[in-house]
C-alpha cells in the first residue's frame, strides 16, 4: 500500500454539491468527515454556517465553493461570496476560474479575478478550479501559472459538473507546472481507491470526492492483494478517451482526439474494454 488508510483519508475533501442536497445530508457528511478524519467537507455556500457549527473544534475544515460551477459571474460577486463564507466559518474556498477569459488569453483579467478572491478570503486557503475538460494543455498550464501568481494555494482540476473529471494526466501536468509549493487538488469522477491512488501518484495533494467513505473503506482491500493496483489499459485513464463532442467545444474535443492518432497505445484502444 503506497500510503496508509488514515493518510488517504486526510487527503479527502468530503464533497456534496448537488443542488437537491437536504440538511440531513450535510449533517451526515459532517459526521462522516469527523469519523474518518477527512481534510474537509466541501459544500455549497448556503450550508456553511450549519457545517461550521457541526465541525467546530474539530480538525475537519469547512471548504465552500465560489462562483460555482461556471465561474462566469462577476469578480465582485465572487469576492463578496468568498468574504461572506469565510466570515460565516469557511476555512477554505474553491473558486472556479473564468474559463472563457482564460481561453481568450485575457490573462490579466483572470489573474485579477483570482487575486480579488484571495484577498477577500482573508487568509483562508484558496483553490482555483480550472475545469480542465474545457481546456487544452497549454490553457491548463496558463491557468496554473496565473493562479500561482495571484496567490492561490491550490489548483484544482474540475468542478464535477463539467465535461470531464480528474485524470492522472492532468494532475501530473498541473503538478509539473506549479512545482511543489502549491497544492494540486484532483476532483471529479474519483469514486474508488484505485482512482484516488492514481491521483496521488500523479501528484495530487488533495482529493475532492463524494465517495470518500467508499474510497477509504475500499482501500482496506488493498491490504489483501497487490493486484488491485496493477496497471490498467492506458486508455482507461486518458482524458482523450473521456472527450465528448456533446459536452466540449469542438476545437477542444478535436484537440483531444488528435492525440489518439499519434498515441503509442492506439492498438490497445479496443472495443468495449
Amino acid at each position: 500500500m503506497p500510503i496508509t488508510v488514515d493518510e488517504l483519508a486526510k487527503l479527502i475533501d468530503h464533497t456534496r454539491l448537488k443542488p437537491e442536497t437536504k440538511r440531513t445530508k450535510i449533517q451526515e457528511l459532517c459526521e462522516e468527515a469527523l469519523t474518518y478524519e477527512f481534510a474537509s467537507v466541501c459544500i455549497n455556500p448556503v450550508h456553511v454556517e450549519f457545517a461550521a457549527e457541526l465541525l467546530s473544534g474539530s480538525s475537519v475544515d469547512v471548504c465552500v465553493v465560489i462562483g460555482f460551477p461556471l465561474g462566469a459571474t462577476l469578480t465582485e460577486v465572487k469576492a463578496f461570496e468568498a468574504q461572506e463564507v469565510v466570515r460565516k466559518g469557511a476555512t477554505e474556498v474553491d473558486m472556479v476560474i473564468n474559463v472563457g477569459a482564460l481561453r481568450d488569453k485575457n490573462y490579466d483579467f483572470v489573474r485579477s479575478d483570482i487575486r480579488e478572491v484571495v484577498n477577500a478570503a482573508e487568509g483562508a486557503i484558496v483553490k482555483v478550479i480550472l475545469e480542465t475538460g474545457l481546456l487544452i494543455d497549454e490553457e491548463k498550464r496558463q491557468g496554473c501559472i496565473i493562479s500561482k501568481e495571484a496567490g492561490a494555494h491550490f489548483v484544482k482540476t474540475s468542478t464535477g459538473f463539467g465535461p470531464m473529471g480528474a485524470t492522472p494526466y492532468d494532475v501530473q501536468l498541473m503538478r509539473e507546472t506549479v512545482g511543489n509549493k502549491l497544492g494540486v487538488k484532483a476532483a471529479g469522477g474519483i469514486r474508488t481507491f484505485k482512482d484516488a491512488i492514481r491521483m496521488v501518484n500523479a501528484g495530487a495533494t488533495r482529493l475532492g470526492t463524494s465517495s470518500g467513505v467508499s474510497i477509504v473503506e475500499g482501500y482496506r482491500w488493498a491490504g489483501y492483494s497487490d493486484a488491485w493496483l496493477e496497471p490498467d489499459k492506458p486508455c482507461w485513464t486518458c482524458p482523450s478517451r473521456q472527450a465528448s463532442l456533446a459536452k466540449q467545444p469542438k476545437d477542444v474535443y478535436l484537440w483531444y482526439k488528435e492525440r489518439c492518432v499519434t498515441c503509442p497505445h492506439r492498438d490497445e484502444n479496443i472495443f468495449n474494454d
Binding site: R191, T192, K194, A227, W228, E230, D232
Partner: peptide, 20 residues
C-alpha cells in the same frame, strides 16, 4: 468495479484475487 475495477482481460494478478 467492486471494490475497484480491474482489467477483465488481464491475466496477471488474477490468481491472487481468485484466491482472495
Amino acid at each position: 468495479g467492486s471494490p475497484v475495477l480491474v482489467d477483465r482481460d488481464r491475466i496477471e494478478g488474477k490468481a491472487g484475487l481468485v484466491n482472495l
